[in-house]
Design a binder for these strands. Sequence first.
DNA 1: GAGCACTGC
Length: 684
Amino acid sequence: MASLQFWKPGTVGPGSNLDRATETEENVVSSAPISSALSLQAARERLPIFKHRQKLLYAVENHGVVILVGQTGSGKTTQLPQFLYEAGWAAEGNRIACTQPRRVAATSVASRVAAEVGTTLGDEVGYTIRFEDVSDKERTRILYMTDGMLFRETLIDPLLSRYSVIMIDEAHERSIYTDLLLGVLKKIRRKRPSLRLIVSSATLDAAAFLEYFLSGNSPDEATIVSLEGRAYPVEVAYLEEPVPDYVQKAAEVVWGIHLQQTPGDILVFLSGRDEIDRCLEILSELLPTLPRNAKRLQLLALHAGLTTDEQLRVFEHAERGWRKVIVATNIAEASVTIEGIKFVVDSGFVKIRTYNPTTAMSSLVTTPVSQASATQRAGRAGRTAPGVCYRLYTEQAFERLQPTTPPEITRTDLTTPILQLKSLGIDDLMKFEWVSSPPAESVLRALEGLVHAGMIGEDGRLTVIGEKVAECPVEVNIARMLFASKDYKCGEEILTIAAMTTIQDVFVIPEGAAGALAELERRKFTAEEGDHLTLLNAYNAFVRYGRSSSWCKAHALSFRAMSRAVSIRSQLKKYMQRFGLPLESCEGDAKRLRRCLVTGYWRNVARWTADGTYRAVRGDTVLHVHPHSVLFTRKPRSGWVIFHEMEETKKTQIRILTEIEPDWLLEHGHKFYDKHSGASVAAQ
DNA sequence: GAGCACTGC
């Protein structure tokens, strides 16, 4: 059984100043009810950031870029935009923007600040996220938004002329849009020096951001301002010896903490759903051995695959005499904040998606976390009181971890980002000042793909269709399909399919017996042609039965995902109308519809083989059908399929398949060879 | 016969 004497202690985090300000957390979804603007104002002024007010305003006044180093709880996100507002930065029709990598953060912070300012949300203080614009064109002075939204705005207003100050929050997370925005903003600053930037970041990355903005500029272009945080100290304990099975060890450690009877909830970081289930299973087998007088242990899972209701359960307070243990994926590292966590158990692993430009394949692999990640995880134990973090690896192993996680831009398909940069008039990508350069191979492959798809001409400039597709918030191949629907007279259906393929986890298949029932429900939508038409059926049924959540529940569909599909569809519909693409129905002519699908997916073709797997026509890779596919159990009659995406996990899998006829590929002028017979099966 | 880390437009 777990015994904690093997641990070697150490400490991270700030000093133990327990005389703290009243809790007024930012970025917390479940915040306390708002009593009155007056008491909020009092709470506001107790925040540590108030001591730095003059220093901050001076820095913004005198430098183009301020790198702001401050921990969660310093109040930067809620207070700094207000300081700037009060200091007159939003005068004369100017706006102050603050970007967030996530939608919930943008909305929850905006509503908090609106309350502090004493205004209705959407008036002086507002937010803009995809599908929701709660702001006023004339009156909004402080605007919270997702970084993706602000990047999109640069496509319409390349100098972002409405804004006087732009604060890029959580920049250390290095989302792809954060990186693209920083690159574009550096360029904008040269053309419009009156624009001020604030880049908010964790300590580790501040120097890199400073160096980035100073490069090629005068020394007073950028400066660093540090704020003290308000987190509590977290004691860190390492294993003395590595363990072979960290899932087993995680369960043992949780059990050990629990038996010690020190109060406080436990948060465990594992890499995925499988591990979470296994860990919870081990713990539930131990439950009967719990001494009669001991506290009870409430076991909870937290990962993105759960329904909203299931996710919300982790926020409920444990009943008297119970302790919560939440076994989570990386979702609990930054996206979801749970109050009252006193113990963190960190496996030191995370699943990371990386893109290989050479094979055009992405892979999802369990990888050791970075030191920055491990520090962030540990910090989850010290939000409301001092805490302890148990790392399931040795201190030497921690020292060997890479300092930060590689930014998303270095491990993703750049097709869409590059199309958008081109649309911004950035034609020479080699001269673009990336915060972190993506691999040259990625840039080249993306350009090559864009030329193939007809988005970029031989001169390297955007084509007419390329200009339009750059505006569309979908992947390039999907956009191509939308445009081709005009020729195949199936705009209505392709629009639905485009929306459905961009959402994830449409079908909710629970564990155990309920899962088998859900599988049967799912089959009711099955189209024999494949998954694209099955998704179309599910969408049409959802709309026909009144878009109801109870209907979704009864048919194993995610109401959240389906509602999102409705929003995406109506957004894409506006683009189609703008581009003069007709919304005709194929009137049940599935063949026409499938031929249209080929216009988008002609690079994703696979051929069935006798052992039930497929071979990629490009690259000859062995491909496994994802178990959620309606073609998982069935051979396609023609033996040929197109697929939406492929991903390497333990095996290389393809998701969302549709059967096609090989000669339809002829229309795309691409040549494929049958590797076994050597015969050209489709040639121009 | 078997599986999907997390975001965002």
